[in-house]
Design a protein around this nucleic acid. Structure first.
Lengths: 210, 210, 210, 210
DNA sequence: GATGAATGAGTATTCATTCAT
DNA sequence: CATGAATGAATACTCATTCAT
């Protein structure tokens, strides 16, 4: 049973997310939010302690479905192919996180906002943990190299995903025409960019690459 | 012969870079910059047309040595190991770019600033182009898989580097303890995370990974 | 039913008009206006888009009663004497326009302000048009020389009025003691300063005066 | 023998007059003046105590030739026609004063500037006095109505001249197409706008027009 | 005399937040 | 619960003036 207050809260969160996505964090003022939500400026403070609190709630609401979906990830180990699973996973994360990235950038730009969001965050496991668990499971099944730390792989995967979602302007200008999609990135990460060791290689120690 | 004006310009750039790094772009006001540089607020505008111009100059000064260094990159193809070269390259980029990342974030957060910086940027080739050239050269030497687009590899490498340098708060909280260093990341990217196809594997075609 | 906002708007306009009249446009800062109006500086921007908008509104409010009064002017043609009507008209214009002159001067000094005011101005007829119509009507009644363009007469009348209201400092210093009032000026303009043609003058064509 | 300092002073005055005429007083900053004069900003203060002093000097230099010319005016009484003399006089004043009007406006807008200029002004007679003397002389010759105060006529003439030179924006918009030239204005002022008394009028009392 | 870098008080404007209605 | 007018500290930027060179 959604009360009037709940509806107002939803409208405020919708407006916030839309504005941050469309005009950027710098232009997302409380006045703009209230106007987009169709409420008075003061109303915002009836539902959230301050602007940072509203933003934290927006991030939270956006994160919830992503986290819910990621919960099933470990159970998929062994099914299909690793590449398929990761492509699926990262594609979904990318899609769902599109609206979150501007918030993450804003938090990095404005430490105060970051602190507020961190305070609002629960300690529950999220995509990073679930992805790590999935990779660990695949490692036990022999489908991921045994000499790698699953957590580190997860960080590299998520970092690459983030880096592709938030490209430095300079790189976009230079190489925007060859921008890889997630399938490309997963392919590179799964198989590596190095030429595979040939069967007659007597030894192909990791040290070769260091 | 450094004139007084040059010294002031340097002090302003130093102060800007330091403040953006330490307190974030949002708090880097013209007043704070002038104070940190030990000059009056008006002095800033004797040397730069406006705040965005100052930031663009700061980015430019930071970028110059990186670009200069990256110019030699393609010539290193074939020497040492690919992993070693890339680790060296990315380590250097990471070190040098530490101060640039906050600016890139600020540009993403504040479109106006991004526009000003883009206007000040020259069309000269930079790290993305040089890295692409290096990868292409290695590919011709047979040390990089022939089926990959060097530009896409470059983007993935730089995106990963960027993503590791600017971690989403959420991931840091979850997996900060297992944060990979650049050597780890290069290792993963060179060899891939998948278990290598063994020669006697009757069927473990690359398709498995797609 | 005057809302609180209307009262604030009025106070802002009053303060603006008073300050421009008393301390001059150059000293009429937003801070001074807000202080004189007894509101915070930011309040100004809740009611007007910017300083120029406030000034345009002030001019508009001052002009309204003048224009309303001038509307009846043409209908007075034929009644009383021309001199009486014009003296009445110009006296009234002078009185009502006392507060407008500083704004007109400010617009001439600061082109930006002039543009803003011009944008806010309606195309409706005002004193210049009504005065022209009045003069035209009197001309048809034979009380104004037939060889003069009513519009040009109106311009000369208004220019003289303006010139008397905004005297050059130099002239005031020199002849301030003999400053003519509006009755004097109208007398001069109606009858002319030249000695009237005497009946026995055989010909005294207008060309004599050129 | 013009020293270097004299040349610099001249360049500063030229630049000031040109800028005030072209871009308006509000935009005539000391920096713009120095740049237009081709000198450093600080140089201005070597020759004039402050900005107001420079402006006062500029007004003074502009006024000198006008005053010199006007000195001969009273001696012309009786020669040619009154209309011709006045048209000539006012035309010349208008031409010469074109560059002064913006300064007079600026003084009216900014009382501080006006005070500085007044302080710099000499008590010597100028155009207002000379025009008054001329009118008085013509009056004695019977070419100007005897019932008018010459000083008041002079003020009305100069006020009209000023009003025509600095038209209120509103009037220009409305009647700009019928803007009278000086000949028109003099014609109106000499002969008046009222219909002339007919010869058979036994009396042509002023009361007719009041 | 001339320079031009430095100054710092001052400007218009923004915006998160409060509070009387 | 909701409103929206009011707030005032903060911001980027300007400009007349000073002073070491």
């Amino acid at each position: 049973m959604a009360s009037r207050g709940d509806a107002t809260r939803d409208r405020l969160l919708d407006a916030t997310i839309q504005l941050v996505r469309d005009v950027g964090y710098a232009q997302t003022t409380t006045r703009a939010i209230a106007q987009a939500a169709g409420v008075a400026e003061g109303t915002l403070y009836r539902h959230y302690p301050d602007k940072a609190g509203l933003f934290a709630a927006a991030v939270g609401r956006q994160s919830a479905p992503v986290t819910a979906w990621a919960r099933d990830l470990p159970a998929r180990a062994g099914a299909g192919t690793v590449a398929g699973n990761l492509t699926d996973c990262l594609t979904r994360l990318a899609t769902l996180r599109t609206d979150i990235v501007p918030f993450e950038l804003a938090m990095l730009t404005d430490p105060d906002l970051g602190r507020a969001a961190a305070a609002a965050r629960t300690a529950e496991p999220g995509p990073p943990e679930f992805l790590t668990q999935y990779l660990q499971a695949e490692q036990h099944l022999g489908r991921i190299r045994a000499d790698l730390d699953p957590a580190k792989i997860a960080v590299v995967l998520l970092a690459t995903l983030f880096g592709l979602a938030v490209p430095s302007q300079r790189t976009t200008d230079a190489l925007g025409g060859s921008w890889p999609d997630i399938t490309d990135a997963v392919h590179i990460l799964i198989d590596g960019i190095g030429t595979p060791a040939r069967p007659d290689d007597t030894a192909r120690p990791a040290a070769d690459h260091r």
